[in-house]
């Protein structure tokens, strides 16, 4: 098995760490992108291991989806910033139970 699977796991864990510790919505987003990239790396590594072109195709779709997600996500960030002049997600705690 490819060693890059382990690298993928490490990058994913880094992304998780980032999502949990970052406080700015943009940076959280970046961490999420890191996780997506890690997942894609795993896909490609598996594609290599199984000789499956399909996995690579899915990887391509993931990139396209990521583009859509970033567009909407950053749009949200900008919209929220307009309202509150802040990108810190901890400020968004109206849904306190």
């Amino acid at each position: 098995m490819s060693d890059f699977l382990f690298v993928s796991a490490a990058l994913f864990a880094l992304g998780v760490y980032g999502v949990l510790t970052r406080r700015s919505a943009i940076l959280i987003f970046m961490s999420v992108e890191l996780m997506l990239g890690a997942a894609n790396l795993a896909l490609v590594a598996f594609a290599r291991a199984y000789g499956s072109l399909e996995a690579q195709t899915v990887g391509l779709l993931v990139i396209a989806l990521a583009a859509a997600e970033v567009a909407v996500g950053l749009g949200l960030v900008v919209a929220v910033f307009r309202m509150r002049s802040s990108t810190a997600v901890d400020d968004l705690s109206e849904l306190r139970g």
């Binding site: 594609a47 990887g59 391509l60 990139i63 583009a67 970033v70 950053l74």
Partner: peptide, 22 residues
């Protein structure tokens, strides 16, 4: 890893377009 097309797409779309957006 024998995913050449995907690699180029990754660089162009991700490292290029998306990161510029960020």
């Amino acid at each position: 890893l024998d995913a050449r097309f995907l690699g180029w797409v990754q660089i162009i779309v991700y490292a290029g377009a998306i990161m510029v957006l960020f």
